[in-house]
Amino acid sequence: MLTTLTEHLTHVATRAAPYWRPVAVGVTALGAVALVATVDPHEAGHYPTCPSLFITGFWCPGCGSLRALHSLAHGDLVGALGMNILVVVAVPYLLWRWGGWLAATLGRPPRRRLAPAWAIWLLLGGILAFTVARNIPMFGPLLAP
């Protein structure tokens, strides 16, 4: 039964238009954003506490991301920056890469040049610095959610 279903889905997938994957991911992401925008993560008990915060007691770089996403979905950029700066930086990048993925499935030739490696090392340093700084009481009001 399961095998037949898998075969059927694979058959549908191979026959479907090449852009079905980015479209499916886009629709799923829109649904997730709509959920977070509707069910407010600022209110108690709507979502579970971040597991790494619960286990370690420290803010991880992702803590506050749901609240930042909620604020972004409601056009509150300042509120989003106050919850998680990383999310505000990541969303445009993720949208850009999703657009590139969609364009590639529509036949755009693959990239021949990569971004400079220092940009990714800079991103890594930024994430680590952000993680440490948001757990320091002096920067907490600005960087912690």
Binding site: H42, E43, Y47, F54, G62
Partner: peptide, 12 residues
């Protein structure tokens, strides 16, 4: 059940 018994507010 840890998720529901601890958080007084969402921390994600």
């Amino acid at each position: 059940g840890l998720a529901t018994t601890t958080g007084s507010f969402s921390q994600f």
